[in-house]
């Protein structure tokens, strides 16, 4: 088993003494190089987890370890070098007047030498397919392009973990596809751990593992295939199931025995094709 990169030990969080608990007794691990999707209804605690990971918030109970180091006031600056985040709104995360200035910003704050910055800018912009836009002003980019630059800016500081907090929610379908392609390329090349907080089912099925949140507690954790086989209980906690899983259920009702819970069209059709060839 690879190394534990993130560990939550019995973590609880609330915004104030009188406020209800937003997270209750959460324990989980995320390993090096792993892609984990966190899903759950609005207000289930997903984004709170992200903010706890890079020390934007601190838990009242329990502890959080990032690469073996506990997250607290003293360690947050080190930890934020390890954890990069991309947020929902592409218009809220630009500081530079050109794309390359923006990518440089994080490195400037960390005192990266100029020569290294120049190479990192080239590397990360080409990793997200934005190398032709180095001198473009951010407001001239589409939503999907902006989010790709945001990802490049985060990658420039070579984090071990990349968190996408609903980073595709405000994009059109084309922008979403761009981002997901970029992210999976980057993850393959850079050996990053990836945490995607999302409602988008297409993003969930691509993950290695899924953590399902419900009312501040961990409701389930398993592979996407196992998660989507629990359709009725997922619906009960306000989540959606992919169309292919719904169709698979209806097919089972008609008496077709599928060998596994399909995650995409190809898997379902392949299964049906084998059945068809046997009859």
């Amino acid at each position: 088993m690879s190394r534990k990169l993130i560990e939550f030990r019995d973590v609880s969080f609330r915004y104030g003494e009188e406020q209800p608990w937003v997270l209750r007794n959460c324990s989980f691990e995320i390993y090096e190089g792993e892609w984990v999707a966190i899903i759950g209804h609005n207000g289930s605690g997903k984004s709170t987890i992200a903010k706890l990971i890079n020390g934007l918030l601190f838990p009242q109970k329990g502890e959080i370890l990032i690469d073996g180091q506990q997250v607290n006031e003293e360690t947050i600056w080190d930890i934020r070098k390890e954890v990069g985040m991309v947020f929902q709104n592409p218009d809220n995360q630009f500081v530079g007047t050109t794309v390359q200035d923006d990518v440089a910003f994080g490195m400037e704050n960390r005192g990266t030498p100029r020569e290294e910055m120049v190479t990192r800018i080239e590397e990360t912009l080409s990793a997200v397919g934005m190398e032709d836009y180095r001198f473009t002003e951010p407001h001239r980019l589409s939503g999907g392009q902006k989010q790709r630059v945001a990802i490049a800016s985060v990658l420039a500081i070579s984090p071990k973990v990349l968190i996408l907090d609903e980073a595709t929610a405000m994009l059109d379908p084309k922008g979403r596809t761009e981002i997901m392609r970029t992210v999976s390329n980057v993850q393959n090349k850079e050996d990053l751990s990836l945490i995607t907080i999302t409602h988008d089912l297409q993003e969930v099925v691509q993950a290695d593992r899924v953590i399902v949140m419900n009312k501040g507690e961990i409701w389930d954790r398993a592979t996407p295939r196992e998660i989507f086989s629990k359709k009725d209980s997922l619906r009960e906690i306000g989540l959606d199931v992919p169309f292919v899983a719904i169709l698979a259920d209806e097919l089972k009702e008609t008496g077709i025995n599928l060998t596994k819970e399909p995650l995409n069209h190809e898997e379902l059709l392949e299964d049906l094709w084998i059945l068809h060839s046997q009859t």
Partner: peptide, 16 residues
């Protein structure tokens, strides 16, 4: 509906 589609697929897969 999804159910109707499932039935059509069923008959193609089973009976061709």
């Amino acid at each position: 509906t999804v159910q109707e589609i499932a039935e059509t697929i069923h008959s193609i897969v089973k009976d061709g």
